[in-house]
Amino acid sequence: MPHHLMNLRHVPDDEADEIRALFEEHGVPYYETPPSRWGISMGGFWVHDNDEAARARALLEQYQLQRLHDQRKAYEERQARGESVGVAAMIRRHPLRTFAALIAIVVIVGVSLLPFVRLG
């Protein structure tokens, strides 16, 4: 019976590539199904054998802990350099684009709520 190891929905390409390399480096016989464009099927990495599933899950757990550590360190380094990715930083870096997006949001919300406002 197949064992689902990891969902591929919203997984960055570099992470999926690293996991493929990890499985191939350790000789894990896996197969992959892609996520659907419409979000109906999740896609993922799969194995058939129970023992291989346990080994692959252990490898994935180690990999994900290391990736978490690396990504957190990279984020903290960006924060230290002043390259934050918060709302205030986006407004400072791209004020016109942010203002245009805000106007678009207000227009969309206004058009969406217009029928309800007219009922009252």
Rank of each mutant, 00 (worst) to 15 (best):
R92Q: 10
M1V: 09
D17G: 14
A56H: 03
G120S: 13
V109F: 11
R20K: 15
R9A: 04
A58D: 10
R37H: 13
V28K: 09
S112H: 15
V109G: 06
E83A: 06
L8N: 00
P29Q: 02
P29N: 09
V117P: 00
Y75T: 10
E24C: 05
R81F: 10
R78P: 01
Y31S: 12
R93M: 07
A74W: 07
L114T: 14
L59Y: 02
R20I: 13
A80G: 03
M6K: 07
L5F: 03
Y75S: 12
P29W: 08
G43Y: 01
R93D: 12
R55T: 14
A16T: 10
A80T: 02
R37Y: 09
E24H: 07
S41R: 11
H3K: 01
D70R: 15
M6V: 05
G86W: 04
M6Q: 08
D17R: 15
Y31T: 04
G86D: 15
L60N: 01
M90G: 04
L68H: 15
S36V: 03
P34E: 11
P115D: 02
H94D: 13
A89Y: 03
P2D: 05
I105T: 09
S84T: 10
E76N: 09
D13N: 06
D51F: 12
H3Y: 13
L60P: 08
A54D: 10
D17E: 13
V87F: 12
H94L: 13
L22K: 03
M90W: 08
V107L: 13
L65Q: 14
G120H: 14
R37Q: 15
G120A: 10
G82T: 04
V85C: 11
D17I: 08
R67G: 02
D17M: 08
A53I: 05
A53D: 06
E25H: 10
M90Y: 08
R93I: 02
V28T: 14
D13E: 14
G27L: 05
D49W: 02
I19N: 00
S41H: 14
E32F: 08
K73G: 13
V117K: 07
P35I: 00
R9N: 05
F23T: 03
I91M: 07
N7D: 13
P2V: 02
Q79N: 10
V47A: 00
R72W: 12
E76K: 11
A21Q: 13
F116G: 15
K73I: 08
D13A: 15
R67D: 09
L8T: 00
L68Q: 15
A104Y: 07
S36E: 04
I19A: 02
G110D: 03
Y31I: 00
R55N: 09
